[in-house]
């Protein structure tokens, strides 16, 4: 046997010994695991993570389906009235608020396509505009010029609104939609924009999709 052959044989033997030792130690471990019934932490962590992730995802998806309606946040001071008649009549109607918040009305609506009127409107026509989703902005005659200008700008820039004086109303300014009303002292009140966002063609509209033009064009 040459020196190199002897070395090779020795190496092979050493390798075999190592393999045997490995096998026997693995067998020992397996036996230990069976006896000791180790807690499978790996599996527990794995499935817990999956469970938490899916629960969070489901909860998030659920919350997303029921977000709050931006337009419907409560506006302080808004008066509500339900059960208003929608009857059509060409006769005079007696309303119990000034301006009226809805009820029986004339078949002809007042044009409300961002329209500024400088004379009082006939209630029966204006109420029909409310039915179509308009907001009617009214002011007590004698309102200061800069206040009135603010209202005019607002109405001129907003579809489904109209502006007119309303002698005898309780506050300097009133905003009226079908079944909703807000009395205000000041034209710079932030509730004006809030009211318009909430009620122009809002969910209170009895006849959504109806027009704000093509009918009565003058007071």
């Amino acid at each position: 046997m040459s020196k190199s052959a002897r070395t090779r044989a020795r190496n092979q033997q050493r390798h075999k010994n190592l393999q045997n030792r490995g096998r026997s130690s693995r067998a020992r471990n397996r036996k230990n695991a069976l006896i000791k019934r180790e807690v499978p932490w790996g599996g527990i962590v794995f499935f817990t993570v999956i469970g938490v992730v899916s629960a969070v995802a489901i909860a998030f998806a659920f919350l997303q389906t029921r977000g709050p309606s931006a337009a419907e946040a409560a506006i302080s001071g808004v008066v509500e009235k339900e059960g208003l008649s929608r009857e059509h009549t060409t006769g005079a109607v007696e309303y119990d608020t000034a301006p009226p918040m809805g009820g029986a009305h004339d078949p002809v609506w007042q044009n409300c396509d961002g329209r500024v009127y400088d004379r009082p409107l006939r209630d029966e026509n204006a109420v029909h505009s409310l039915e179509h989703g308009a907001v009617w902005v009214t002011y007590r005659p004698g309102l200061a010029g800069d206040q009135l200008d603010r209202l005019k700008d607002k109405v001129d820039g907003t579809d489904y609104t109209m502006l007119s004086p309303y002698p005898g109303q309780d506050a300097p300014i009133a905003l009226t939609a079908w079944g909703r009303q807000l009395m205000l002292q000041d034209a710079s009140d932030a509730r004006i924009d809030a009211f318009l966002r909430a009620y122009v063609k809002g969910p209170q509209t009895p006849e959504p999709g109806a027009a704000c033009d093509g009918a009565k064009d003058t007071p």
Partner: peptide, 16 residues
């Protein structure tokens, strides 16, 4: 209009 309803948004923008 139905889009705005679905998105829960106002039908008007008083900002102009």
């Amino acid at each position: 209009t139905a889009w705005l309803d679905d998105w829960g948004l106002p039908k008007t923008d008083p900002g102009g």
